[in-house]
Write a protein that binds this DNA or RNA. Sequence first.
DNA 1: CAGCCTCGAGTTCT
DNA 2: CTCGAGGCTG
Length: 719
Amino acid sequence: MAQDPIRDESPQDTLNTLAEELARHDALYHQLDAPEIDDAQYDALRRAYLELAKQHPDALPIQGPQTRVGASPADGFQKITHAVPMLSLENVFSTKELADWVEGIRNFLMELRDPSIEIRFCCEPKIDGLSCSLRYERGELTSAATRGNGVEGEDVTHNAKTIADIPQQLKGSGWPDILEVRGEVYMSDADFLRLNEEQDRLGAKRFANPRNAAAGSLRQLDATITRNRPLCFFAYALGEISAPFAKSQSEMRLKLAEWGFTLNEPAQVCTERNGSLSPLQDFYDLLAARRSDLGFSIDGLVIKVDRLDWQLRLGFVSRAPRWAVAWKFPPEQASTQIEDIRCQVGRTGRITPVAYLKPISVGGVLVSRATLHNADEIARKDIRVGDSVIIQRAGDVIPQVVSVQLSQRPANSVHYLFPSQCPACGSSLRREEGDADTYCPGGLTCPAQVQERLSYFVSRQALDIEGLGEKNIALFIEKGLIHSPVDIFTLEARESSWLDANGKTIPLLKYWDGWGPQSATKLFDAIRRAREPSFERFLVALGIRQVGEATARLLGRHFLTIHALLECLDRALSGDEIASAEFLAIDGIGESMLKDLLDFRAEPHHREILNALLNERVLPDQVTEGPLLRVKDFVPPDSQSPIAGKTVVFTGTLERLSRSEAKAQAESLGAKVAGSVSSKTDFLVAGPGAGSKATKAAELGVRVLSEQDWIDLMHTNPE
DNA sequence: CAGCCTCGAGTTCT
DNA sequence: CTCGAGGCTG
């Protein structure tokens, strides 16, 4: 049905007509499940539309498919900030670890310290796909986002709309006005095999495993590609909801099914009491046995506290909920040989030995290298070149050497001798007493360190200069065009007078092999954009030891400008105790970090680099809010609560709340929990057996509450 | 001073 | 993702 655009119609009319047609076929396909045209015809129609849209970008219909296709910026996806952060799960690998986790829950919720009280757990298979958050407003799908870093994900709405398992309009009734449903996008084993056959036929690259195929398919800028990929979706959790509609995980599942979602099966509610984990163990065994005939890949099971009120009270630790855990199957292992062990030099000079392996497939991915961490690790496992070793992928990602198969060791094998000289610069390596790592002292005289530092300077968490990756940094260094960070920014201005080591003229970038006018312009544009980094990125880029994203943010929040930070450092260097104290007063900065900051500032070479950058007008911004990465910061404490901003101390035996729950609850209401009573303390919550703290509170005139008073206070609504 | 939690650094492959 | 180390808490 690929009609030629009708010539005497204006492009705008044609685009409108095509857009309407596409919308109609989308609806037929997804909502009514009754397509009138096949996929090839649909594709042709879409291509005709896109082709014309490209020629007449100003004539695009406002409601046209471009809002779903090709509307994203050329360099990738739009970002979506999650209303409720998407967390990851803590893993356990044994019944022992599972028992510890259950015990932790019983300790946190006071009334569950009686082991005869049963806890119901909702258990589901853990699908190997990628998590996705779907937002429904008044029953209509409005956006879809990947997990990303948990706080900010990629907008894949246009792709989600092509997945049959994802309802565009909720069925039934009774859903809240705002409903965020979270689940897993995945590909079945059969579809994965079929897709790879198709890829072969098209001469395209095969996917290594269903997970990668699903990820690759969802992360397509062109939704017509996603539409032709057989993706599925399981719902398993909620994000933001405007009103509660269930009391338990299992009840929530039933509602979601009613509203048109597919659930992951088999799922089961398992009960634990008196320490007996056998119902959970039985379900684990059942899934392990059925693993190969489920039709999709799973890597374990997810166990959730079924009661939602308990989930709410249990809350989160770090990036994972306390109320759920992933019980993982043992990772797949494989055996291969170590062909060589070579040492890499990192930007800090740290030497990392890496095993080069005879390539082997582990968990669907070809592995050819594995880190050996350090000399002790090699000695402990007595790893030698030529050995047969067992490899597994830790957390299904990073390959690791589990053990050596000694029975297969060649007769002539010798211990691995850790190098005494840097493989890059030849300096004698150093290892401090009690330190696990070996370092090259070469610093800026070591070419490997210079290159790694420059790579770090432009890397994603630092200045994030697109198009200037490891390979191109190496290239510019090799041509002698970049020696220090500031050279990156003068690169373009110097372009017409580039000289090589022999004084011979180097041609303009666009004439280099593999480069053209487009890629050259793109690179220079990216460099220009990097002249105004955020405070945090700029500080990270400097590569001060122990100063990464979080610490940079901490310093930024306190000092606001680079100049204020440098000024305070300079004062501290000249012996000003008040300046040092200012650093140590920042929550999270201690002696050791201060020392590294001072060492950095005292080094003349670092001063030069910093001055050169500032002179070249690479100017970091004042601190702005920016994306917060800590979940703790993400969920704003309830500032309406009567205890918001107050400092509380707990003492004695609490009978209804556990210490940890009392603390977590107080913090979520905006209070600060301190360890000892001082003049800053607003409340002392004293249970039976309170001792010196109660005395001190009386002396200072601090208000003393019983546990019951405290609970009442927390449930008071301010008027 | 021990036992948390958090952070940084280095890691693999697509 | 994992490791080790720093910093805070009790």
